[in-house]
Nucleic acid binder design. Structure first.
Lengths: 124, 124
DNA sequence: ATAGGTGCAAAGTCTTTGCGCTTAA
DNA sequence: TTAAGCGCAAAGACTTTGCACCTAT
């Protein structure tokens, strides 16, 4: 993967905004300082960065994908009230793949897990 | 929810085809015997049936939703090779919500979990 | 030099919605 | 009778892609 200024900007932006922005939100953020950047470029680079493991894709059914610069296998909870996404550490969740493999004998390679709930800000 | 012939047909079709069809696949199946049915009706009824808990929606990121007439909280594995969806019994997987709630103190209401792997037919 | 990246606009996929007509209760 | 459902076609949300130009190596 050869260097590109745009990819660096996207990576930086994700680091500065750990709020799990969507491609669109990222695009809006980037355009402030780089009005020439294109939404297609944002999508293309996000896909590349996910592909090579530098970032993490958060797929919430029926919502735009969100992205996380921290790719350490942690999980996420989406707030049903405000849409905010909380991080849930990896250690908080048992290894479902291992369990399902042991119980079924299936050849399971991975899984996607997303939690739904109410964030602390909305609870109060 | 008042009775509708179309909804009954959709429900029947889902029972006859436990292969977790998508709205489109269901539409194609239904049209064989009921050429007048509309795709919008299929979508509307599937949403209603999910809403009232009669069927289960299977959301695989970046794929059309699939539907399962058996709504007992079991899980699914999508085959990375052929797209086939295997059932994984509820008991095969630990209660991730309880674990995550205990570990984080967050107010977690539910979760979506999908497995990726290779089905037995493709493995051989 | 050339493989890969970019911006733009168009297209693609899946799903929902507005509307006038039909049907269950 | 009237609230709910239907079929149709149009629109919506999100994402990808084709193309001509640009840039890193």
């Amino acid at each position: 993967m050869i260097y590109s200024k745009q990819r660096e900007l996207i990576m930086d932006c994700l680091h500065v905004h750990p709020s799990h922005p969507s491609a669109d939100e990222l695009y809006a953020l980037l355009r402030v300082d780089h009005p020439g950047i294109s939404l297609a470029t944002v999508y293309r680079n996000l896909n590349q960065l996910v592909e090579c493991g530098q970032i993490m894709r958060i797929s919430v059914p029926h919502c735009a994908d969100r992205f996380d610069a921290v790719n350490d296998g942690h999980y996420h909870m989406t707030c049903e009230s405000c849409g905010h996404i909380d991080d849930i550490p990896r250690e908080a969740v048992p290894d479902v793949c291992k369990a399902a493999t042991a119980a079924t004998g299936l050849d399971i390679h991975g899984s996607k897990l997303i939690f739904y709930g109410v964030c602390n800000a909305c609870k109060h």
